[in-house]
Design a protein around this nucleic acid. Structure first.
Lengths: 235, 235
DNA sequence: TAGTGGTCTAGACCACAGC
DNA sequence: CTGTGGTCTAGACCACTAA
């Protein structure tokens, strides 16, 4: 009925191109004068769209150079979607990842419903180590339809979370954090006593309406602390 | 050395007035034409400043009515700075708060250093109940220099977190989340077994450089789950 | 219905960083 | 040095809604 404002249309089109992968990190966006000609509008209108994308962190704008699709922010977003490898390294500890299982399968009925994913998924388990001590046990599912490239990645070397942060853009995420006694099987994998407390982090990540990945991590209680710092409107 | 852009100066001045309390929630901001005269600039410059504040959630702009200082978002920010009373109610459970201790004191040396607060503080402890069952044990310190009004609030009725969310603006917060065995004294207050796992949430909140409050909550592990949903750039 | 914000224009000058 | 984004102007028309 009511057409959206032009600057909003421009913003949305570029954003879509980035999320689709048509524009990849590092790619250059046409300069404002070109877009202005392309859309037949004034420069300020284009500027408004690009400024909004830049302040949302999707573009990086450099004078004399142009506007570029921003690279995924491995560091700055560590707080919200932690990259364990980076977090451990930042604490000055040696990080190691051990992949313990890997298979490609169709999700069963319950999983398909929970994930909203009918396609094939990659299922992984593994253990994160800090300074040689087990830090967390990880169980993960990755939507292979959305992230085909991960089937070829060497996930015995790179932890899947680090790979995903570096390669896959996302639009929304949800963390669920709880505490419990460590389940026996996981306690064994972590080398801790049965009944010891653990911190459980479950995260789902979406791109648009599609689930990218879902992961559950059991942390040894006294070896990890989740820290998030933020402002009232997100930052 | 380099003067900030005018729209940024306008934005900062209004933001400061809001955070200082010179402008209170619901107050009306001068209309764009007035600000344009006041700063001797074009309307688009004023508009840019006000739009930025609005998209940061500090202003609410209504056609024909004007621009108003936004009321604190008790609902939308529940994810980041949970108001337990609201969260429990949202789950359809009956919420109750029991204040167990309250005193006004100067922080000891360690606390003063940790808090960056030399002034007097209000120290509280209490228990949050959901449907009659203990949910969390809370220990809190509030900077009385910054939040004088809380000395008069009836915190046996209103939990301090709810009071603060409704009355005090903040600029930054930090959550630290961990798991552990419940300490004996707290286990007793919560009516659970010693050694039972618990989820520990420590939060500090700042207004500018000053600490507003610092709180530690021990949650009964199987009765609570922290959930945070967000986008890559905050939302 | 009139006041207000939302949007847009067709220019302009400047600072800056790559070339 | 020059292309690029950053900022700003002095207008304009429109949509909405609260008075």
């Amino acid at each position: 009925m009511k057409p959206p404002p032009l600057h909003e249309r421009i913003r949305a089109e570029i954003e879509t191109a980035i999320l689709n992968g048509d524009l990849r990190p590092g790619d250059r966006i046409p300069i404002e004068t070109d877009l202005m000609a392309q859309y037949g509008c004034a420069r300020m209108t284009v500027n408004k769209a690009l400024s909004a994308l830049a302040s949302a962190g999707m573009l990086e704008r450099r004078k004399r150079a142009g506007s570029f699709v921003a690279r995924p922010r491995a560091q700055s977003m560590v707080l919200d979607v932690p990259d364990l490898a980076a977090a451990v390294a930042a604490r000055g500890q040696a990080y190691r990842w051990a992949l313990t299982s890997r298979k490609i399968t169709a999700p069963d009925q319950a999983e398909a419903a929970a994930l909203g994913v009918r396609a094939k998924v990659l299922k992984l388990t593994g253990v994160h180590f800090a300074d040689g001590l087990p830090l967390a046990f990880e169980e993960r599912m990755v939507n292979l339809e959305l992230v085909q490239a991960i089937a070829e990645a060497d996930l015995s070397q790179t932890p899947p979370g680090s790979w995903l942060i570096a390669h896959v853009p996302w639009t929304e995420a949800e963390n669920r954090i709880s505490a419990a006694e460590t389940p026996p099987g996981i306690a064994r994998a972590l080398g801790i006593d049965r009944g010891a407390p653990c911190l459980i982090l479950e995260r789902r990540t979406w791109r648009g309406a599609d689930t990218v990945t879902r992961v559950r991590q059991h942390f040894v209680a006294d070896r990890y602390e989740l820290i998030a710092r933020f402002g009232p409107s997100g930052n």
